[in-house]
């Protein structure tokens, strides 16, 4: 019941309520892993479902994400990073010249809520920063997004640059964003395309066998 209340508060986008409920459960010696899994993550999964069936839209997801992070920030320092490391590391960013990062932020929260370790490079990320990060972080997945027809070709530059640096076979590349699709992903040599945040999580799970 306690966990259901947290889940409901995330779905209802109630930041303060999530903080209060999580704090109360931690005081009552409930395991932070359980709070995360059965309360916060369960809440975001429901948000993802509501988003997929068009009951929730971007504003609702953004507000629910705030509520999720309000709880996540309280429990994550108490959880050993073992689980997240096991599930794998993902680098995410919006390509150079593009500052539309809402979609990327939603994908990030859904991936974190699914237990992945996410390294967020932010928006307007130059090709060399993507490539350097792959070298440094050794992620299983590199996820890129673009929201403009003027910036989508930057994704191809990143894939080419990974090939040039002989890094391409070390990381799966996935893409998303309004102007791109499955065909475009194939054409630029990416491993997959996610139409929305839920699809991105499923794609990651399929690609790295979770």
């Amino acid at each position: 019941m306690d966990f259901d209340n947290i889940k409901k508060a995330v779905v209802d986008m109630e930041v303060e309520k999530v903080k209060d409920l999580v704090t109360k459960l931690l005081k009552n010696k409930r395991l932070p892993e359980e709070i995360l899994e059965k309360g916060l993550i369960a809440g975001m999964k429901e948000v993802g479902r509501l988003f997929s069936c068009k009951e929730y839209f971007v504003p609702e997801v953004l507000m629910a994400s705030e509520a999720f992070y309000a709880g996540f920030d309280l429990v994550s320092p108490l959880i050993k990073t073992k689980q997240m490391k096991e599930k794998g590391k993902i680098i995410i960013g919006v390509v150079e010249g593009d500052i539309h990062d809402i979609g990327k932020n939603i994908v990030k929260v859904m991936l974190e809520a699914s237990g992945y370790q996410v390294v967020d490079l932010g928006k307007d990320v130059p090709t060399e920063i993507f490539v350097d990060s792959v070298t440094r972080e050794n992620p299983k997945i590199l996820a890129m997004s673009a929201l403009m027809t003027t910036t989508m070709m930057k994704m191809k530059d990143v894939v080419k640059s990974l090939e040039h640096k002989k890094l391409r076979n070390k990381v799966k590349v996935i893409i998303g964003g309004a102007p791109v699709n499955e065909d475009f992903a194939k054409r630029i040599g990416a491993d997959g395309y996610g139409e929305d945040a839920s699809a991105a999580v499923s794609l990651v799970e399929a690609l790295i066998g979770e």
Partner: peptide, 11 residues
């Protein structure tokens, strides 16, 4: 800012 704006639609 788009994100702030979208949140304000509800908040």
């Amino acid at each position: 800012g788009i994100e702030e704006f979208l949140k304000n639609l509800l908040a």
